[in-house]
Each structure stands twice: as structure tokens, then as C-alpha cells.
Write a protein that binds this DNA or RNA. Structure first.
Length: 872
RNA sequence: GGGAGGUUAGCUCAGUGGAAGAGCACCUGCUUUACACGCAGGGGGUCGGGGGUUCAAAUCCCUCACCUCCCACCA
């Protein structure tokens, strides 16, 4: 067996073997309870990033754990067609080949996009495989699969027939960068240093002028009113009159609207219904016409007037300002920093624009989703997200679901030449409805998130009543980043309740963001992104997974630190070597299912007890999604209890100096259970090692992935063994520390004087051969320690060592003096506490006693220390 | 303008009422027959500031400061 753990030698082998043997394939029908996780589908043409690696780790950990617990486990993988992202990639690719998108046409373009998709498809799987993901690839799905597209059409048609989806002319967020409408969620507010232009408008038939302020002077060309607050005495006299729009000459009315803030600017607002969302609402309330002055590419229209038609909106702004100035309408220009909506994906400022789009009314569905979290039927972990959830759903607005793209699900709506609209599952059905075959299909596609919203059931065959759907819906847990809680999570809950009448999952585990080692957000522009596969190359998948799992504290972002990961690779090496040692020293012993506890001596009973407690706690922590605490526990059990103590305690037994019954069996059994406990986090290493354990094949399955997950095992809990070995460990610790403190040469053997109760003396006699190598002792003496010995009281034991005369350095002396001062301070504090009557009467007895005992210990220790100091 | 989270050892973070913790980094010794990706020992923090509740506060309450992030129709 190699001296070192070399993950690159085994990882691929096991992933292939697991896959070929179908260990991860779920049963469509089963006696066993089901457990299901739907993967958040990554972009089909994308690469896995660090955030995916984190989420994959958590999902796989849960899946493997539940699988070992005997559940009929399904982790369903798949990918998303990612409309905008993929279309942009394909466009870029075409541009590089010198092909014009327009001359290719829609059909040609979609064909290219499919080529691109199929070409990249498989990459995601390869990457997930490298991380050890135990997905059921026989059930892999893609959002544009025929089956899923069918679900999309079904959902659209139903929602339309229920009156929730409608086609409407409304003001939308237009992205001039992408040339499509986008949803509110895809708009990102950015603070922009701009100008606030104060423009004066003459009042018709008077010499009076009013002043309005705007950050976008070019939109004034489309003004159709001026708004004032209904209670604003300053301006009430204007109501009924008209302002004359400068440069244009159009007479526009005054309207009273409560949305106006009297304290901002002059308290008067210019109203441009077709180019501002607030103004659009005002326009609707007062039945104002709108004028479209900017077109979809961001250029001024003919309606903007001959001076401006055809100009880019930025150029037009300059020209409007210049002309206003020349004609004496510009009152003031003020520096002004304000928030401007930008297109999240293309980065350009959003152009609010009136256009005809498809909208989904979310009110009803949102109310149910809101109630679902309030009532606890959907649980957000951590629950600090509850308020965010509430706020968003309470203020929900219609979702603009149509996109002016080619890549995606084309909207299942057909038009005849008389303006009739026919929404149907297919062209045939639409033709039947229309009574004509002269129909053209809507050219828009649906927002990618519309199909994602159906993912928990569309992947299981809905709307057909499939066996998978019956078995696995509702799913159990969703693991994803908080950044898509609205984009995706909330919408899945809404559609799940609407179409399935049941929440799509019980629990949503929201992970933090993966940041770089300094806590910065990873971004391509910053250049600090980390490729998880490179980390797998360097440290192995198991170390990467362990690192993510142990860092996943609720509500916390995760700083990805290579040093830390190196530390957990070392943990892998530790495991490797512990097994290597065990296999090399246990002779013919074999892993056992049951152990005759009566026959075992103290160290064996101790490690089994520690193991049982660890198993109980790890299960409990997994149950509440505290992977960090579970891993912490696993780490310390394996390295601390098992390697530092138990294996050391085994050595004298293996060497024949102090044989004990069943040592080999116990060690192998503990290794077996430990590997199984670790398996969900470190699948490759544990399979590689577990396969080598003699005897395990008689008891369990051929693979650790299907072996039972260790449970609490109460009969292994042994308080007496834990107490005694605990005292023993403290005793050894004292000897080691004392030797180091007093600079005793490491080769010098010392005799340890111990005063203890008779029972522990008996125990200690058994343990004597084990204690010798651990602390370089020649042996124990139960005689009274001589006056000259260094003495102390530890864990209720009186301990003494005769230390050969050594010259203590100044540093040693300094340290001793410091310790003495600290002890004195503590002792004083506790004395004060105990002499405080309100403490002794009000504090629980347990706490008071604890302090009494502590004071005795401190006093003893202080006395010993001062005697020692006197001597030196 | 609302809301959430954070401020604990050099770094990154656990710890929600009873003696300050982990990993990494650091210091001092070690070829102790699995592992130097190791072993043993050790240094280092008035738990952001202030106030309050309590016998007792990193932990509960108030307040201030700073840092993140989310939501938002003050033109």
C-alpha cells in the first residue's frame, strides 16, 4: 500500500465503477421511502464554478447519506437551455465565423444553437462526475427536451385559460443591449452620477412659468401632462390649465396625483407615460395618451420631432438641453447621483418602454407561496430568509414572461390575420380553435425561468401521471444559492402549489456565496474566479468536498482558501495511513458486525463508546443541515480519538508487549464504521479503503455507497470507560506538559507517582504498559510522592514526578511566573464569587459546586507551583 | 427610504446566559517501528464602542460606529 494518499489514482476508477453498476439509479416504485433532490440545472453550455461545487457537495452529501440509510434515493441531474446566455454565446460564435444572424434566419440559428448545445452537452456531467456526484444519469433532463417542452406548453395553456397569463400593452424593462424585454428581477440598480435638469414650462394664457426637474431631459419630448400633489396649495390653481411643452409646443394638462412628493424639487412632475414606469401608472390613472419618442434600439422616433428623429438617445439628450438653453427654458443643471436600472446581463441602462408582451399574474400564486413558508410547509434554512421571502411575495407584480429571442420555448400562441389570438398545445389545436390554417405563431420565446419554475415536476414526466411523479413528488430538499431565491425558488413553490397542489420540496437549504480567500466576491472581471476542477486536480475531490462541507455554516459566505483545503487533504492522508497501519497490524482479524463487549478491555470499550457518540451526533447534525458541525466532529473523532489515542493504545498490543483480546477486530470494526461515517463527505477515499478491509464483504454490500450508515448504537456507550480513559488521557497530558515545561530530555524515562482511588489504581495497573511509551515513563508508583517531587492534582488524581536537576532558562522561569499570576487572579475571582451571597443562593447548585471544586484545584496547583519555584 | 447579515486569536470562521474554541499561520522540541500532508508541547483574544437586564453576558435588551448584501416608482 502506498505511503501516501494519492486521490488521482482512484477517483475516476470508482466513479466509473459506481456508474456501471447502477448504484445510483432510483427505483420508480419501491417499498422503501423515497428521498429526492432535483439539481439546480446548470447552463448546458457552461462550466461548473465554485458555487456549483459547493452545492454539488451538499446535495451529494445528503443523497449519499440517505441512500446509506436505506432510502430509495433519486438525485436527478439535468441542464438548462439558458436562453439569453446561450443565445449570446452562439451569436458570438457566429460573429467569429463571420456569419450574420439575420441572414441565417430563425430556423438556421436555432439549428446552430442545438449544435452548440449538443457539442457542449456532456461537459457538465464530466465535471459533476469528477466531484463525485451520485446522480441518477438514466433520468437526466434538459429544459428543451420534448417532454419538458410539453410541460411548458401545458402550463402556459392552462394558465392562459385560467386567465392568469395574458397579452397586454404595458411598460416593460427594455434592454437595448439584448433587444428584448426583461423581467424586473433582471434589472440591477446602479448608482450613477448624473445631472438633474430643471426645465421651465410656460402656462398657457399667462406669464407664469413652472419648473419641473428630470434626469432624462430627452423624454420631455414625450410628455403628455404635468402632475401635482392633490393637496398642494401652491399649485392647485394650475389644475384645469395647460402647460406648453417647450421645443414641441404641445399643450399638456395638469393632473392631481398622490404619488407626487411635494418636498422633492419644485413639487411638480413632468409625465412621460411611454418612457417611465411611474408616469405610465399616472397616465393610466388619468387616461393620458402616450407618445413614443424612443425606439427599441435606443434611437429617437419620428414622433420626437424632426430635430431629433434618428438620433441616439444620448445624443438627443445633449441636443435637447442645448436647445432648451438657447430658448431660455433651462432653469438649472444640478449634479445629481441617483439609481438607474441596468440590464443585469448586458450591463446597459434599461429603457422603460411600452410594448406588447405576455404577462403572468402572480398574485394568487404568491399568496399560496407566502402561506406555505408562514405555515412551515416550506422551510427555508436558514430561516433568516423568511422576511425577504415575505417582502417580495407581498409586493409581487406581474411577471413579463415573453422574450424577443430565438433560443427557448416559443410561445404557444397563434394569430390569424384578423387579430385573433389562439393559445394551444400545438398548431393543429390552434387551427381547430381558429377554424383556419392561416395562422402565424408568436415569434417570442418564454423567459428561461418559466421552464425552470416547472423543474420539480416537469422532470418527472408531468403532466402525465408517471410512476416517477407519484414516487418522487414532492421532493425533499432543494439546495441552491440565495441569489436565485426569487428567480427560481419562489417560482417553483408557486407553480408546484398551482399545478400539483403540493409544495415541490419541504426544505430549501440556501447556501452562501463562495468567495475568494480574502472574502471578495468571485467575478470574471475581478479575475479571481476559481475553477473547482483545478482544485480537484490539486487536492482531490474528497478534500474539496470536505472543505466546502465544513465551511458551510448557515447564512455565511464561504471563503475558499487553498491552505485550508491543503489541510483537509492532509486529513485524507491521515485516514489513508490509519487504515494502512490497521491493515498491516491486525493479522487475520476481520471486520465484525457485532462485538462481545464482555470480552473487551478498557481501550476497546472506550473507542467503541466514542464511535457510537460520534455516529449519533453526525446523524443529528446532518438532519438539521449543520454539515460544518458534523464534519468538525468527524475530523476530531478520527484524528483525535482514533489516531492520537486509540491507535497508539493498540501498538503495545500488536507488538505483543501487552496483548488484549479482540484488538484487531475492534480496530478494523472501528475503521469500517468510521469510513462509512465519512463516506458521504469523502466518497472516493472511503470506497478505496473500505474495499480493502478484510471481512467487510461478508457483512455488507459490495460497495460502501450502499452499506448502512452507522447509527447511535446505545449498547456501545460506556460512561465508565470514557471516564477512566478520559482521566488517563489527562494524566498523560500532564506528564508530557511537565516534561516540556521543565525541559526534561525526551529520552529520559521517569517514574510517575499516582495517588488515586483503589478502583482507578486497578485500572491504571492494566494500562501501565500503554502509558509507558505515551509519556516515556518507566512505570507507576502508588507510593506517596517524595517532598522533592513536582506534584499536581489533575482530574482528581495526585500526580508526582521526580525531575532530574536541570538548569531552567529564563524563559521557563518567566512562563512559570506568568502561570502563577494567572492562577492567583482566577483564584481571587472565584473566591469573590463564592463569598457573594446572591451568587450562592441564586445560582444553580451545580454551578456553585463547580466553582468550589475549581477553587480547590486552583489552590492545590498554586501551592505546588510555589513550592517548585522556591526550589529553583 | 425599507430590510437582512456581519464585527471573536495574525488570517478565515465556529460558539446564543455559567471557567474563551477550530483550521491554517507562528514558536520550541522530536527519524517514538501508519502518516514530516507527521508527533509532542506552547504563545496569542479586556469576543467593534458605550449603556442596561442578571448572582452571572461573546451570548438577552437599548444605543452608536463601521462593513456586506437584498429590496425600493423622489422625477
Amino acid at each position: 500500500m502506498e505511503k501516501r494518499f494519492q486521490p488521482e489514482l482512484y477517483e475516476q476508477k470508482w466513479q466509473t465503477w459506481w456508474s456501471e453498476n447502477g448504484f445510483f439509479v432510483a427505483e420508480a416504485e419501491s417499498e422503501r421511502p423515497s428521498y429526492c433532490i432535483m439539481i439546480p440545472p446548470p447552463n448546458v453550455t457552461g462550466n461548473l464554478h465554485a458555487g456549483h461545487a459547493l452545492q454539488t457537495t451538499i446535495q451529494d452529501l445528503l443523497t449519499r447519506w440517505k441512500r446509506m440509510l436505506g432510502f430509495n434515493t433519486l438525485w436527478l441531474p439535468g441542464t438548462d437551455h439558458a436562453g439569453i446566455a446561450t443565445q449570446l454565446m452562439v451569436e458570438r460564435q457566429l460573429a467569429a465565423e463571420g456569419i450574420e444572424k439575420a441572414e441565417l434566419g430563425r430556423e438556421g440559428f436555432v439549428e446552430k444553437a442545438w449544435d452548440w448545445t449538443l457539442q457542449h452537452h456532456g461537459r457538465i456531467r464530466a465535471q459533476l462526475d469528477r466531484l463525485g456526484a451520485s446522480c441518477d444519469w438514466t433520468r437526466e433532463k434538459f429544459t428543451l427536451d420534448e417532454e419538458l417542452s410539453n410541460a411548458v406548453r401545458e402550463a402556459f395553456v392552462r394558465l392562459h385559460r385560467e386567465g392568469l397569463i395574458s397579452r397586454d400593452e404595458y411598460i416593460v424593462n427594455w434592454s437595448p443591449g439584448l433587444q428584448t424585454a426583461i423581467s424586473d428581477l433582471e434589472v440591477e440598480m446602479k448608482s450613477v452620477a448624473g445631472k438633474l435638469y430643471h426645465i421651465s414650462y410656460p402656462i398657457e394664457g399667462t406669464d407664469e412659468r413652472i419648473v419641473v426637474a428630470t434626469t432624462r431631459p430627452e423624454t420631455m419630448l414625450g410628455d403628455t401632462a404635468v402632475a401635482l400633489h392633490p393637496d398642494d396649495d401652491r399649485y392647485l390653481h394650475l389644475h384645469g390649465k395647460s402647460a406648453v411643452l417647450p421645443l414641441v409646443g404641445r399643450k399638456i394638462p395638469f393632473v392631481k396625483d398622490a404619488v407626487v412628493d411635494r418636498d422633492f424639487g419644485t413639487g411638480l412632475v413632468k409625465v412621460t407615460p411611454f418612457h417611465d414606469p411611474t408616469d405610465f401608472e399616472i397616465g393610466r390613472r388619468h387616461d393620458l395618451p402616450g407618445v413614443r419618442v424612443i425606439d427599441s434600439s435606443g434611437r429617437m422616433t419620428d414622433e420626437a420631432g424632426s430635430d431629433f428623429a434618428g438620433l441616439d438617445r444620448a445624443v438627443a439628450r445633449k441636443k435637447v438641453v442645448q436647445m432648451l438653453q438657447e430658448q431660455g427654458f433651462l432653469a438649472e443643471i444640478e449634479d445629481y447621483t441617483h439609481n438607474v436600472g441596468h440590464c443585469q446581463r448586458s450591463g446597459v441602462p434599461i429603457e422603460p418602454m411600452v410594448s406588447t408582451q405576455w404577462f403572468l399574474d402572480m398574485n394568487e400564486m404568491a399568496a399560496r407561496a407566502l402561506d406555505s413558508v408562514r405555515s412551515g410547509r416550506t422551510r427555508l434554512v436558514p430561516d433568516s430568509w423568511d422576511k425577504t421571502w415575505e417582502h417580495w411575495l407581498e409586493n409581487i407584480r406581474p411577471w413579463c414572461i415573453s422574450r424577443q429571442l430565438w433560443w427557448g420555448h416559443q410561445i404557444p400562441a397563434w394569430y390569424d390575420d384578423k387579430g385573433g389570438i389562439f393559445v394551444a398545445h400545438s398548431r393543429q389545436e390552434a387551427e381547430k380553435l381558429a377554424g383556419t390554417s392561416e395562422l402565424t405563431q408568436d415569434t417570442d420565446v418564454l423567459d428561461t425561468w418559466f421552464s425552470s419554475a416547472l423543474w420539480p415536476f416537469s422532470t418527472l414526466g408531468w403532466p402525465d401521471q408517471t410512476r416517477d411523479l407519484a414516487t418522487f413528488y414532492p421532493t425533499d430538499v432543494l439546495v441552491t444559492g440565495f441569489d436565485i431565491i426569487f428567480f427560481w425558488v419562489a417560482r417553483m413553490v408557486m407553480t408546484g402549489l398551482h399545478f400539483m397542489d403540493e409544495e415541490p420540496f419541504q426544505t430549501v437549504h440556501l447556501t452562501g456565496l463562495v468567495r475568494d480567500s480574502e472574502g471578495h466576491k468571485m467575478s470574471k472581471t475581478r479575475g479571481n474566479t476559481v475553477d473547482p476542477l483545478e482544485l480537484v486536480d490539486e487536492f482531490g475531490a474528497d478534500a474539496l468536498r470536505f472543505t466546502f462541507a465544513i465551511l458551510d455554516s448557515p447564512g455565511r459566505d464561504i471563503p475558499l482558501d487553498a491552505d485550508r483545503m491543503a489541510g483537509y487533504k492532509a486529513f485524507g492522508n491521515k485516514i489513508w495511513n490509519a487504515v494502512r497501519f490497521s491493515l498491516g497490524n491486525t493479522g487475520d482479524s476481520r471486520v465484525q458486525e457485532e462485538l462481545d463487549l464482555e470480552k473487551l478491555e478498557l481501550p476497546e470499550r472506550w473507542i467503541l463508546s466514542r464511535l457510537a457518540r460520534t455516529a449519533a451526533e453526525v446523524n443529528a447534525k446532518f438532519e438539521i443541515y449543520r454539515f460544518d458541525e458534523a464534519c468538525q466532529r468527524l475530523y476530531h473523532f478520527f484524528w483525535g480519538d482514533l489516531c492520537d489515542w486509540y491507535i497508539e493504545l493498540c501498538k503495545p498490543a500488536f507488538s505483543g508487549k501487552a496483548p488484549r483480546p479482540l484488538v484487531g477486530e475492534v480496530l478494523l470494526t472501528v475503521i469500517d464504521r468510521s469510513l462509512r461515517l465519512l463516506h458521504p463527505v469523502m466518497p472516493f477515499l472511503t470506497e478505496e479503503l473500505w474495499q480493502r478491509l478484510p471481512g467487510r464483504e461478508v457483512i455488507h454490500s459490495e460497495t460502501i455507497t450502499l452499506a448502512p450508515y452507522p447509527q447511535a448504537q446505545p449498547d456501545w456507550i460506556d460512561d465508565e470507560a470514557e471516564l477512566n480513559i478520559g482521566r488517563f488521557i489527562q494524566m498523560i497530558g500532564w506528564v508530557r506538559a511537565t516534561r516540556a515545561d521543565l525541559a526534561v530530555d525526551s529520552k529520559t524515562e521517569l517514574e510517575l507517582f499516582v495517588s488515586a482511588d483503589d478502583d482507578f489504581k486497578v485500572r491504571l495497573t492494566e494500562l501501565e504498559p500503554l502509558a509507558r511509551p505515551l509519556a516515556r515513563l518507566s512505570g507507576f508508583s502508588f507510593e506517596l510522592a517524595p517532598e522533592s517531587a513536582h506534584q499536581d492534582k489533575v482530574a482528581g488524581l495526585g500526580l508526582g514526578l521526580i525531575i532530574p536537576e536541570v538548569e531552567l532558562t529564563d524563559r521557563d522561569l518567566e512562563r512559570q511566573a506568568k502561570e502563577r499570576d494567572e492562577l492567583k487572579a482566577q483564584s481571587t475571582r472565584i473566591q469573590e464569587l463564592l463569598s457573594n451571597e446572591s451568587f450562592t443562593t441564586k445560582a444553580p447548585e451545580k454551578v456553585v459546586n463547580q466553582n468550589r471544586q475549581r477553587l480547590t484545584e486552583l489552590t492545590d496547583r498554586l501551592a505546588q507551583l510555589e513550592a517548585g519555584l522556591g526550589k529553583s
